[in-house]
Design a protein around this nucleic acid. Structure first.
Lengths: 335, 335
DNA sequence: TTGAAAGCGGTACCAT
DNA sequence: ATGGTACCGCTTTCAA
């Protein structure tokens, strides 16, 4: 019944390895990281001792001594919907390849988001911050390298975004090409900097022909409710430009429930190209979400190793995907 | 031009706070964490000094001294598709509420997944491991609390899963009720323990009437390819039961491309209830993904604080969602 | 209530 | 090439 491992339940330390190998801890430290001058024989003995003891250096001790965490973090509003998940995924892939662990923080509606971010900042060497999560002053107060994703630039801070205005213009022009005259833009510009750009582009092209309908959120539910109200109004729009796919999908649902034909009676478009958008035949805009995260991770790594260069900014290209929901086309567009 | 903050670019230490407040570092340590006996006046002075210096305790130093990380990790295969993202989200929400940071690790096809997990294990107090990521011996070799998610139990380790067999039976019975006679199950049982259960349940009901078609993966592409081949075969199945929604959506695409009517000529079902499944009218099975992650986080926290209790196991319920893709129904089912 | 000092487990400089 | 040792910055006895 007696358990064998009475000797040490806790992980072995460098001291035990040193003793067992008959060398000093300094030598163990060197031998285990190949970079330094150690005799092959010594290294062998140390390796063996370490293996026998199942030794792995303590991460906290190492971090404390080295003054770095070999980890970085990413802050996002949520993980519902593929958008953020894809960004995080792209980020993690690159960060892992660069040898750092990834800490995540979803701010959601947390009132203490700012504190949570500051707390996170103490565990990492760098931080990527996505969209609507915390205020700019929290960002500027951070004393570590930061990269902003899909967010308005802050002086001195790297920023990666996707194009909104130009593609929004292209979308608006396409819709106008269908011959529609009354448009509505559904989305909340206060809720996201991306939406501001989309609305800007749309308005540049359509001007007064397009009205802004602020949505209370970005989910299916919100889109459904807003579209229902719109369809019941005196003069419903002929085309509904939604700030993202979920809103658009909700609008589709509402139209169906109201017995309105899409695109015959109401044209609908979205943004993001969710998987569901393909199956709903939704005209939308595809964004390089993974590349967004990947770029952020790469930049962050660079800036951690050399914080001096001037802040970088990049806008990744987006692509209009014309499907059936915006109106009839002569040629069928693929996918 | 001279920069003001020549004094200290680096974060303040407890020593500086102590000096400024005119007390010892021990007192600072106590004062800043409310639990210990310190005069109100002293505490006030320390607080003020800390604030002036913008002091936050070093995380690594604290971890080293306390012997804990106040962080735990979650390991998953990937983040594509809502499934894992939802689980991670549920996990993060609870973990954050319990005061621990969350480290993530996506194993993907990484050859060094096992090493990555072991490395991660040195940075956290506990680990949640999801589905097909690393082998059982990696799990058992870990010297810290672990909770398994959607994965076959390992002796002595907590496990949370969702029900597969029973709901698979219900699904199979429903399909048989449509009067179909020839079935195929599309999915790779070797790729996931969940799939094993689903296939088991289906086979229990349909027996030899259902053949197993191993898919090379779990994505749209794989489903599309497999379904295309199936439809071209001599005797195509009348109903195609897919191991997840993405496969099913791919199958839907293939059927459309081949000009076959769904469900008229081919019934198709999935698993997961992705957003896209709703818009494709796909009959599928809904799973409590967020609850999966939340439960894991809760159990992990408990086990970190008290590792002694026997291993727990729980199976969370799943729900069959009948939509149009499996055949015509008298009543229209909602959503 | 407060302070002194011994860890926690490594890294890296300085001798040898 | 190796050993001795001073940190890294905090928590936590043990005394006072």
């Amino acid at each position: 019944m007696a358990v064998k491992a009475l000797t040490s339940n806790r992980p072995a330390t460098i001291y035990q390895v040193a003793e067992r190998a008959g060398v000093s801890i300094a030598t163990v430290s060197r031998a285990l990281r190949d970079d330094t001058p150690v005799t092959d024989e010594t290294r062998r003995r140390v390796r063996q001792a370490a293996a026998e003891l199942d030794f792995t250096p303590s991460r906290s001790a190492r971090s404390l001594a080295e003054g770095r965490h070999a980890a970085n973090g990413i802050v996002f509003p949520d993980l519902v919907g593929p958008y953020y998940a894809e960004v995080v995924l792209g980020y993690e892939a690159v960060a892992a390849g660069l040898g750092s662990s990834v800490l995540i923080l979803a701010t959601r509606d947390r009132a203490d988001a700012a504190d949570a971010v500051r707390e996170l900042a103490r565990r990492v060497d760098g931080l990527a911050v996505l969209g609507r999560t915390v205020d700019d002053d929290v960002i500027t107060g951070l004393a570590l390298p930061v990269v902003l994703i899909a967010r308005d630039p802050v002086p001195g801070v790297d920023t990666v975004r996707t194009g909104n205005v130009n593609t929004a213009r292209a979308l608006a022009e396409h819709l106008r090409g269908h011959g529609y005259e009354r448009f509505a833009f559904l989305g909340d510009p206060d809720g996201s900097p991306d939406v501001v750009g989309r609305w800007t582009g749309v308005r540049q092209v359509l001007g007064g022909a397009c009205s802004l309908v602020p949505s209370p959120g970005f989910d299916l539910e919100a889109g459904q409710r807003a579209a229902r109200a719109l369809l019941r109004s005196r003069r419903p729009p002929r085309a509904l430009i939604c700030a993202n796919d979920e809103l658009a999908l909700g609008a589709l649902r509402a139209a169906e429930a109201a017995g309105r034909d899409v695109p015959g009676e109401l044209a609908v478009t979205g943004w993001d190209d969710l998987l569901a958008a393909r199956f709903a035949g939704l005209t939308t805009v595809a964004q390089p979400m993974r590349a967004l995260g990947a770029t952020a991770a790469r930049w962050l790594d660079r800036r951690i190793n050399d914080p001096t260069p001037a802040a970088r900014r990049r806008v990744l290209p987006t692509r209009l995907l014309v499907r059936g929901s915006c109106g009839a086309h002569l040629e069928v567009h693929p996918r």
